[in-house]
Design a protein around this nucleic acid. Structure first.
Lengths: 143, 143
DNA sequence: GCAAAATTGTTAGTGTACAAATGGATTTTG
DNA sequence: CAAAATCCATTTGTACACTAACAATTTTGC
């Protein structure tokens, strides 16, 4: 009796925002890694903010990119291993470690930044121009 | 000279869909785990589809929930450990493992399903009613 | 001026995600 | 009917993401 599907259940899932949002995000991640295969979205975001902010502590960079302290650590570690980020101890506060983008990191960001627009454009391509604006507007309200 | 922030760089990031979408998703995940602390969204999705589809192979369940074969394995393992899912070998095709929701799993899903609507409602709460419909419509086109 | 509170970075543990490689089973095709 | 292609499930490796707990170090509040 429980052998056959209860049609109402499948219904439920396809109506949930989270489920649809996850799939939209999956599609976006695929587009991203096709354009920028060598850097993950998180690594790019961290590098971008570091270039923008100039000189920050690790936790501050995490806050600027909406990442957990534990998460930003891993991201920064990988960026440092790649030579894009350098760290030096803060003389005033011995808990802190100052982060800066290396010349190489800055160059990489400048080369990659234009691609970011392409990625956004391709992600939003299924929508018309007016729809894109509307979507971004609504999405922003949900964060 | 590179000490001070270059204002145009920070701009870029906050405009990218992926960055905003990730934050919207983070907020949604937080809402989800407040309402359903014992199951992750992925586990709930897999359980829901299993209840809906009745009896499927592991990979088929993965496809139904937009999960990788490697990913669905872990999710199913955890659901099985929790006693919500049972597996048995397929007599016709020896590659396959049939999955079914246990009585306990079915009961859990039925108890949790109403909460899914609350989660969606809370996630979309910052939007008006017409905006919610519009948002879901646009989001669906992006998956 | 000193104990309590807050912050910084780290580690450990759990749970997605995907790519790539493996091995076994089944289906297709030549 | 055998070879090739496909499919299923698993394993390995890398990368988020969050919780919780921790030590070291400021900062604060009385």
């Amino acid at each position: 009796m429980d052998q056959q599907p209860s049609k109402d259940a499948k219904y439920v899932l396809d109506q949930q925002v989270g489920f649809i949002m996850r799939q939209a995000n999956q599609r976006h991640l695929a587009i991203f890694s096709r354009h920028i295969p060598d850097l993950t979205p998180m690594q790019f975001a961290a590098l971008a903010q570091l270039c923008a902010l100039g000189r920050v502590s690790q936790n501050a960079l995490g806050r600027a990119t909406a990442m957990d302290a534990a998460t930003i650590k891993g991201v920064v570690d990988r960026l440092r291993r790649r030579g894009y980020v350098a760290s030096s101890p803060d003389p005033d506060d011995q808990r802190r470690v100052h982060l800066t983008a290396t010349t190489e990191g800055l160059a990489a960001f400048r080369a990659l930044a234009p691609l970011a627009h392409e990625i956004t454009a391709e992600t939003l391509a299924p929508l018309g121009e007016a729809e894109q604006t509307e979507f971004l507007h609504l999405l922003s309200k949900l964060r």
